[in-house]
Design a protein around this nucleic acid. Structure first.
Lengths: 135, 135
DNA sequence: CAGCATCCAACCAGATACTG
DNA sequence: CAGTATCTGGTTGGATGCTG
């Protein structure tokens, strides 16, 4: 590259191409991680996931597993039986994702209290200022 | 605990208390990671972040850094000068988060192509079925 | 059992205008 | 410079009813 005038030293700009963001777009939503963690333990059927993940709607579970399947993280196996049966399991790619997810989980467990403490401290200070402002 | 009848073997249920989800609620949004990564390099001023993070609005940047500050991940320093100056930097807690984030980043870089390939394959198959269905 | 289709409410987030 | 306030369109996601 022959660009690079003196005084224009490549303006650093971060956009949505950041690969970490790309992963978080898939995994950072409300349900994906829970599904991945469950499938990391063993294969699950649709209603198993549905029962185990508290609060997820049928619709959201469908959308979540479909997105994970699309990205090659989850395999979806349909058994042509009556009643129908569909198994979900992690692909090999999906299992490799468990590793960094586990790192995140470790961090979360280690610093959960730190975050809660910081949050309460911050909220208390904010409340102080509100009292001062209104008093 | 004296519960535990035979046949009711503790129903495993995952809810939003999953610590990984707790982290992802903070970090999994559209902008937090970009802010954290930038602050991992050095202290930044508000408009530095604003210029460097492509596409973020002033409002979203404010909300993002405020949330990170509330959770003790980012320090906000106000200099009472004219014009005003506000510096943002990672706290020690915030710097520890860089480690698992780096793991995620490594995974993302390693498997970016896998995901894209899976996605294209999936989309192609879906298109196939659409063609078959309409033909 | 494992979904899909539809409707609708709530929240999110961008644009714009204004302020200390 | 570093925000706040308000409005509003767009997306997300739950509820419900129906199907192979």
């Amino acid at each position: 590259m022959s660009v690079g005038h003196i005084g224009t030293p490549t303006p650093l700009v971060l956009n949505e191409d950041c690969p970490t963001r790309e992963v978080l777009d898939r995994v950072g939503d409300k349900w994906s991680v829970l599904v991945i963690v469950l499938l990391g333990q063993r294969t699950h059927r649709f209603n198993e996931l549905h029962r185990t993940i508290e609060g997820i709607s049928q619709r959201m579970l469908t959308l979540t597993v479909r997105a994970l399947e699309r990205d090659g993280l989850v395999n979806r196996t349909i058994y042509p039986t009556v009643p129908p049966r569909v198994d979900y399991e992690l692909t090999e790619l999906g299992r490799t994702l468990l590793v960094p997810l586990e790192a995140l989980n470790t961090w979360a467990n280690s610093h959960r209290d730190d975050i809660r403490a910081a949050r309460e401290r911050h909220d208390a200070e904010t409340a102080d200022r509100t009292v001062q402002a209104s008093g």
